[in-house]
């Protein structure tokens, strides 16, 4: 495919980079990226990837835009409150760059649909806010063999790392299983600085573009953490865990299953009943 005049101008600041060039920009235009969650992390991820000219972007989110989302989910505007997030996000993406083909799924990712959805894409970016989803995405990326860029935020802190399934440490290499319900507070309970979502999501988009372009050093086998209060980045070296229940030598997880715990909007009363 050849660039149109308009595209040459639109992407000129990319094309002028020797590491990108016309060739790299074409790679971006042919890339198929799945963004899971059109929320705090998903907003900057989707907007920057759209601006960059990603060929096909998948967006999956079951939720409607809520007034409390607007503090950080910058792809949604005040008039979008009450509308499906994927619809609101698709409109902004198309407004920003009509070159991008958006495939939207107004549903939650689950063990039944995850592999089918993943198979339409080359790269997966985790912009979700709850642990059952994060573990499911990690496992599905492993089974579907798709590079995954993980991100998480809470309060004033964020973390990000890239997983090349089978090659580099996965989420379960670090966190073998879900935290028990109630042990870890959710964003809803503990709060999150809105701009932090922009920072971590933008890092995720940057890492995705690097993978697509095949440039630089991917953020594998190391976790980048950011503390907004200290204005401090730290890098923690990690490695594939031979005892990992998913990608270790003797895996106990051999099929895709959704672990049923719900952390992000759990009800303490309900939890107590379930536990008893």
């Amino acid at each position: 495919m050849a660039f149109t005049e308009e595209q040459l101008v639109r992407y000129s600041r990319h094309i002028i980079l020797s590491e990108v060039g016309g060739k790299g920009q074409k790679k971006i235009g042919q890339a198929r990226v799945l963004v899971i969650g059109a929320g705090g992390l998903g907003s900057p991820i989707a907007l920057y990837l759209a601006a960059a000219g990603i060929g096909t972007m998948g967006l999956i989110d079951a939720d409607m835009v809520d007034l409390t989302n607007l503090q950080r989910q910058i792809i949604h505007h005040t008039a979008d409150v009450g509308r499906p997030k994927v619809l609101s996000a698709t409109e902004k993406i198309t407004d920003l760059n009509p070159d991008v083909e958006v495939i939207s799924y107004q549903k939650n990712l689950d063990a039944e649909n995850a592999l089918e959805v993943f198979n339409h894409f080359d790269y997966v970016i985790d912009g979700t806010d709850n642990f059952p989803a994060k573990f499911l995405i990690n496992d599905a990326a492993f089974f579907a063999n798709k590079p995954l860029i993980h991100g998480g935020i809470l309060r004033f802190d964020g973390q990000i790392f890239t997983i090349l399934p089978g090659e580099s440490a996965c989420y379960r290499c670090i966190f073998p299983k879900l935290p028990p319900q109630g042990v870890v507070p959710s964003c809803q309970e503990a709060g999150v600085l809105g701009a932090l979502a922009g920072l971590i999501g933008t890092l995720q988009a940057t890492e995705a573009l690097k993978l697509i372009l095949g440039i630089g050093t991917p953020l594998t086998n190391r976790i980048l953490t950011y503390s907004a209060l200290q204005t401090q980045f730290r890098e923690i070296t990690i490695k594939k865990n031979p005892d990992c229940p998913l990608c270790g030598a003797h895996p106990s997880i051999t099929t895709l299953e959704m672990e049923t715990q719900e952390v992000c909007d759990f009800d303490p009363l309900e939890t107590a009943q379930k536990d008893s």
């Binding site: 642990f131 991100g151 998480g152 935020i153 809470l154 802190d157 870890v184 959710s186």
Partner: peptide, 29 residues
């Protein structure tokens, strides 16, 4: 990585370097 079941039996010594990695993303507060 230290298996959670071995935390209470893993002895520390001068100069050790420890990383505490918290769940995040709806994560640790």
């Amino acid at each position: 990585m230290i298996d959670r079941t071995n935390l209470t039996t893993t002895l520390l010594k001068e100069g050790d370097s420890i990383e505490l990695l918290f769940f995040m993303g709806g994560g640790s507060g």
